[in-house]
């Protein structure tokens, strides 16, 4: 039964545009979907390796800027009079480049910042995001700084010689976001269920033990950071081409907070967690808007966040799983135990 759950969810999600015609709710689904993708990528770091990146919005924003700039073209002068001129490319190459550039930064940041752990790691990642924001704000020649990149083209699908199709409509964007979400889900689930993924969980549970049995800690962490940053970059690219304008506000700390809330309330270290948490916190503003004043909406948001952490500190998905396990007496062993056994088996 549990094996089919993702498929059922996918089919259910795919049916939404068929019966839901309210563009505002559909818009909420699309933006929520984009943030769910970003939250899933954060979950790979936070949930599986135990490293809390509070600068995750940096990868999201880098993906957004890279994708937008590749499809808009730019003309900048670097140091020593070297001039880089880039003609606009098709949008899908922009999206791919967004992923690549974000992943590259993921590699650099991973290499450098995994030298520290815990609270220090948190602060390095915040600092990184803040520096990237300030670069986007001040490198006016490339990013237009606060003047914003506007007229970002919509995503185009098609083949050379066959013809192109602009994804203008909400329905097509919905399916595009859903497709990227499903793809990210597959990538992440493959990764965490592979040898690399078990190693990551192992070092999250007990790093010194993992090191002592010969796991290449930094190597796996960097791998996680690269994949995570790449997926966040994809989400950023989708965001840029959907909103059609980006400015340094794309690096708002609030966006990182949104991702963290989605992951932790949904259940970190579970594949479904960010999706469940994302749907809840993506839609709270949509519903609270109709009956609360502006400040009170935020206050409700904050209180709800505290409440969830108090009542379900593990997150919603693990709580539901536990409840089902208790009811069915499902003999399935928890993930943690199996990985610990795995470590002990390792040569």
């Amino acid at each position: 039964m549990k094996r089919y759950l993702p498929w059922i969810a996918l089919v259910a999600a795919a049916s939404i545009p068929l019966w839901l015609h309210d563009p505002y709710i559909l818009n909420a689904f699309i933006t929520t979907g984009i943030f769910i993708i970003a939250a899933m990528s954060l979950n790979l770091l936070l949930g599986y390796t135990g490293q809390l990146s509070l600068g995750h919005v940096a990868f999201f924003g880098i993906g957004a800027y890279a994708s937008a700039l590749v499809s808009l073209g730019f003309d900048v002068e670097l140091l020593f009079g070297i001039r880089v001129v880039h003609e606009p490319w098709p949008v899908w190459t922009g999206l791919v480049m967004g992923v690549v550039v974000a992943a590259f930064f993921g590699y650099v940041v991973g290499k450098l910042s995994f030298r520290v752990r815990g609270a220090y790691f948190v602060i390095v990642t915040i600092s990184f995001a803040e520096v990237v924001r300030l670069v986007a704000l001040n490198w006016v020649e490339l990013t237009q700084g606060p003047l914003a990149l506007t007229s970002i083209p919509p995503v185009t699908l098609g083949l050379p010689g066959v013809g192109y199709y602009d994804l203008y409509s909400k329905q097509s964007y919905f399916y595009l976001v859903l497709a990227v979400l499903a793809l990210s889900y597959v990538v992440i689930s493959r990764l965490v269920n592979s040898r690399a993924g078990r190693a990551m969980v192992a070092l999250k549970e007990n790093e010194s033990l993992a090191v002592s049995v010969g796991i290449d800690v930094t190597g796996y962490l960097v791998l996680a950071a690269v994949v995570s940053a790449g997926i966040a970059g994809a989400a950023g690219g989708l965001y840029a081409h959907y909103l059609k304008i980006i400015d340094p506000d794309v690096f708002l700390f609030l966006y990182t907070v949104t991702m963290v809330i989605m992951v932790i309330t949904g259940g970190k270290g579970t594949l479904a967690g960010p999706i469940v948490g994302g749907l809840i916190f993506g839609f709270i503003p949509v519903f609270s808007r109709s009956f609360l004043g502006p400040e009170l909406q935020w206050i409700l948001y904050g209180l709800f966040m505290i409440l969830i952490v108090f009542v379900l500190p593990e997150g919603i998905v693990p709580a539901i799983e536990k409840w089902f396990a208790a009811r069915d007496k499902d003999p399935e062993t928890p993930l943690v135990k199996s990985t610990q056994a795995h470590i002990q088996d390792a040569p």
Binding site: D22, P23, T31, D249
Partner: peptide, 29 residues
């Protein structure tokens, strides 16, 4: 004060509240 929300709000005003005209949105972004 957030561009994503500004776009979402416009969508809501136009499609849910069916306003034929709007005023906004203070900041340029």
């Amino acid at each position: 004060s957030n561009p994503t929300e500004a776009a979402a709000v416009a969508e809501k005003l136009i499609t849910n509240d069916k306003v034929p005209v709007m005023m906004g949105a203070w900041g340029s972004s």
